[in-house]
Design a protein around this nucleic acid. Structure first.
Lengths: 214, 214
DNA sequence: TCACTTGCTGAACATGTGTTCAGTATATTG
DNA sequence: CAATATACTGAACACATGTTCAGCAAGTGA
């Protein structure tokens, strides 16, 4: 059961409103007054609770990164599905919440140390995932192992970053479940076989159905 | 021979200064006064020449898209190198000019119709490139042909978008020539063979040297 | 010479910004 | 009950913003 907005404390409502507006318009383009109005509260309350607009941003960052960190943490345990788990988490995180998507898009666009650190964690995840992938495939590869994790991340994070310009070129929402599943499958196939390999059925089963009309 | 800043007309100097600052800080976070100061001119001149700050943005957009369009236009003629030509143009465009890179990053982050249209053109380029790739490979593929062009673009545009968060995780500049060449090679290999295919020497020759220390 | 356009400026205006502060309810604690 | 802390507000402050406007200097054509 979700708590209705008016049930939350002022602090939480301000933080949520800020998350929404920052995701939509960006930090610089969002005024403290707009946040307060969205939350139905007084602008002065922002200062009371967070000290400054920058403090508000920090609080929002913290909450988002906590949510993201939690999601990334219960990613490992299965260990079986190989890189499909990244598609999983991306589905659970990004697919569910367009606001979170927008905010993450903004964060990954900055060049603050915090952003670089977040990306570093994603990179580490991609690296270990890649190692498992390689091991499962027999340890044989001619690929550029320094760059491969970045390629993985580009494939996964790219659609998130490009959503605003990509979506108008598609006929169905990019982040609904079937599209996500299809993308995840396409990424796995690309990484394992390239565009031209025949899909021999070794390794993970192909769970994707091309469930898109047209 | 480059024209020194003081040789340019006020209008051009304002536009160039705006390009620089928009690329660096974003549009919303850049004041008309800051642009004027960067150009060594009066803020009122922005209004005189462009009517409004939005007009200034339009002028900058126009110039950048013209530059980009020209670069994309003399991409086709060769026709031989397959998708390597995209690496080529990306090297000539993005590698050369960090300012242009920053600005393009900002543009691809917006959700204006102009941005979507620009991406649409990139997408079309990727599609035709992909068709040539498939034809050259014998026309046989199990890949997801609807999604494949997006995958290509993610691999190419991803490093551009992620530069601010990626660069701190690397020990060499991402957009110097050898890194670009290496990335282009890695992308070609990934698309053709995946991470695990043996690099049989059919098709385009492998022109990349892993010219990176460490 | 005059009139006229063009590039450009300084000062000002109205508005929106982040932030401060005194003060008011409401609850909690002694 | 009084005392105190907490959540919250309205009005104000200092400042930055986009924009306007009257006017200056310089070049051009008649």
């Amino acid at each position: 059961m979700e708590a209705s907005p008016s049930d939350l404390t002022g602090r939480a409502r301000l933080r949520d409103a800020a998350l929404r507006l920052f995701a939509q318009r960006g930090f610089a383009a969002t005024s403290a007054r707009a946040v307060a109005a969205e939350a139905g509260l007084s602008p002065a309350l922002v200062m009371h609770h967070f000290g400054s607009k920058e403090g508000l941003r920090a609080a929002v960052d913290e909450q988002v990164l906590a949510r993201l960190g939690a999601a990334l943490r219960d990613l490992d345990p299965g260990g079986g599905d190989l890189m499909g788990s990244l598609g999983e988490v991306s589905a659970r995180m990004f697919g569910a919440d367009p606001v979170l998507r927008g905010y993450l898009r903004r964060v990954l666009q900055e060049d603050s140390p915090a952003s670089a650190a977040l990306f570093g964690r994603l990179l580490e995840g991609a690296r270990s995932e890649l190692e498992r992938l390689i091991a499962a495939e027999g340890g044989r590869t001619d690929a550029d192992l320094q760059w491969a994790p970045f390629q993985m991340l580009c494939l996964i994070v790219g659609p998130l970053l490009l959503e605003p310009v990509m979506q108008p070129n598609l006929d169905r929402p990019m982040f609904e479940a079937p599209a996500l599943a299809r993308r995840s499958a396409a990424n796995q196939r690309l990484l394992r076989l390239g565009l031209f390999g025949a899909s021999r059925s070794t390794g993970a089963p192909d769970t994707a159905k091309p469930a898109r009309r047209r």
